[in-house]
């Protein structure tokens, strides 16, 4: 049984790796590429801790074959902050104390970013349904939802300001 050679982009950088045909993307990210920010909570697509972007889609990396990402772009938690600046979503989660143990947090950051890219000002209900696949057992979700509402407002305002003539 020979390994497959896969070329893809991970967080904007070209990456090549070898994988087994049945190996998951999660497994490759964590064990081959040492990107351990993406967490494993269930391996059956039920918890969202392994959320990543595959091209423009939010997916569970545990239910994606590594071989499938040939020629595609993968976005992980490690690519969210910009240099030494946290993404506003990360900052909002911190300021709202929206994490306790923090193990689900990377998945949330990726999922929230995907949400706000599609729907910049989601309602509370839209946020809750979008994030229903990201389990959190610590917070009761309350502060996460508040953080998303808050950061959505901030980002919308920042966009508006950026769009206005100086």
């Amino acid at each position: 049984m020979s390994k497959m050679h896969v070329s893809a982009s991970v967080n904007g950088e070209p990456v090549e790796f070898l994988c087994e045909p049945q190996q998951s993307l999660l497994n490759v990210l964590r064990d081959e590429l040492n990107l351990t920010g993406t967490k494993e909570g269930c391996t059956t697509g039920d918890c969202g801790a392994c959320s990543v972007m595959l091209d423009d889609r939010l997916v569970c990396s545990c239910l994606t074959l590594a071989a499938e990402v040939q020629g595609k772009s993968v976005g992980t938690i490690e690519g969210v902050a910009n240099g030494d600046t946290l993404h506003p979503i990360q900052q909002a989660l911190l300021e709202h104390a929206a994490l306790q143990c923090g193990v689900c947090t990377p998945g949330y950051v990726v999922a929230i970013k995907a949400l706000l890219e599609k729907n910049p000002l989601p309602s509370e209900s839209e946020i809750r349904y979008w994030l229903a696949g990201n389990l959190c057992r610590c917070t009761g979700y309350d502060k996460i939802i508040t953080a998303v509402q808050d950061v959505a407002q901030q980002m919308a305002k920042a966009d508006k300001n950026a769009g206005e003539p100086a």
Binding site: T38, K39, L86, L93, G102
Partner: peptide, 11 residues
């Protein structure tokens, strides 16, 4: 913990 840097049991 918001950047994925924190190391948990399996990391």
């Amino acid at each position: 913990k918001v950047t994925g840097r924190a190391n948990y049991g399996a990391d």
